[in-house]
């Protein structure tokens, strides 16, 4: 009897999850197939399979994915390959700052027993609970006055704060390391720096890699921040946004727009396909405090 109930429950769950998966994959699959269709094929039937592996839409998209910018008083277009470069620089620099800062701060607060550390901890908790809304204009102003506007490093520094969930994750991770490790090293005469890098960091390396990968993907896909803070350095995500809003005649047909979106998704999908197990597994390991 119990077994039957259990099975029914699991079957219901299975059906729900299957339904969700189908609903999620359908639009993406439809878009993928559509990206190979010619205009005529598309107008004849929106759901037919493409007749051939026609890459014309991709070629058109690659040629027309571009963003006009002004740099040092000269206007020009930024094309896909430069946007790709901008994306790499923006995501890597921001990821480093966004992961290293809370990690270092969390270590300092978790390991050393200073009153100031407790203050930092309270700051994190309070800022997490009390949200501040609508300070974006002020952020832009401050960035401009400090020369951080339109600069990869400036933006990375702005992203390099210790507030938020990352701090909590690292704090929990460092707290869970038994004190003996550090004390043993201390007695051996290791310097504080050495204890941090050689003894403590290796214990949280899975957490770091998981958080870093997640941050990297988030930065890679984020187009609004570069749109606001990096006007002359458009990233590929912003390029995609721009491509789908453009009035350019060549890019006005749906099949070309979809092909552009597919083209731009390829890098991050490759990352996902090759690192899938690692990513999901690691996030499990490095999750929040229980």
């Amino acid at each position: 009897m119990k077994k039957v109930h259990r099975n029914i429950f699991l079957i219901v769950g299975f059906i729900l999850l299957i339904a969700y998966s189908i609903s999620f994959v359908t639009p993406l699959l439809w878009a993928f197939l559509t990206s190979f269709k010619t205009e005529i094929e598309f107008m004849l039937d929106k759901f037919s399979l493409p007749k051939s592996l026609n890459l014309q839409n991709y070629i058109t998209a690659y040629r027309t994915i571009r963003v006009p910018i002004v740099e040092n008083g000269v206007s020009r277009y930024v094309y896909a390959e430069e946007m790709l470069f901008n994306s790499v620089v923006y995501s890597v620099l921001s990821t480093i700052m966004h992961v290293a800062t809370p990690c270092i701060t969390a270590y300092a607060v978790a390991r050393y027993n200073f009153r100031f550390g407790k203050l930092l901890y309270s700051i994190v908790i309070i800022t997490m609970i009390l949200p501040i809304v609508g300070n974006l204009p002020s952020q832009i102003q401050v960035a401009k006055s400090l020369g951080f506007y339109d600069s990869f490093f400036g933006l990375a520094i702005m992203k390099g704060h210790f507030l938020g969930i990352n701090f909590m994750i690292f704090y929990a991770a460092f707290k869970s390391i038994p004190k003996d490790y550090a004390e043993a090293a201390d007695i051996d005469g290791a310097s504080q720096w050495k204890i941090f890098t050689k003894v403590m960091l290796p214990h949280v390396k899975t957490t770091i890699s998981a958080v870093a990968l997640l941050s990297f993907i988030t930065f890679w896909n984020d187009y609004t921040t570069p749109m606001i803070f990096l006007p002359s350095k458009p990233t590929i995500a912003y390029g995609l946004y721009y491509f789908n809003q453009t009035t350019l005649t060549e890019a006005s047909f749906l099949t070309v727009r979809i092909a552009g979106s597919m083209l731009i998704s390829i890098p991050i999908l490759l990352v996902f396909i090759f690192m899938k197990d690692k990513l999901i597994g690691n996030i499990n390991v490095g999750g929040l405090k229980g």
């Binding site: 299975f14 999620f24 639009p27 993406l28 878009a31 993907i217 727009r257 996902f272």
Partner: peptide, 30 residues
């Protein structure tokens, strides 16, 4: 549930694929 690992992957996809791409494909599809 049967296929839990595959479902875990699908449920995690919205975090991987750019929200912009998902939004646009959803809009075009609908």
């Amino acid at each position: 549930v049967p296929g839990a690992n595959s479902f875990r992957t699908v449920l995690f996809l919205p975090q991987i694929i750019s929200s912009l791409v998902i939004s646009l494909m959803f809009r075009y599809f609908v």
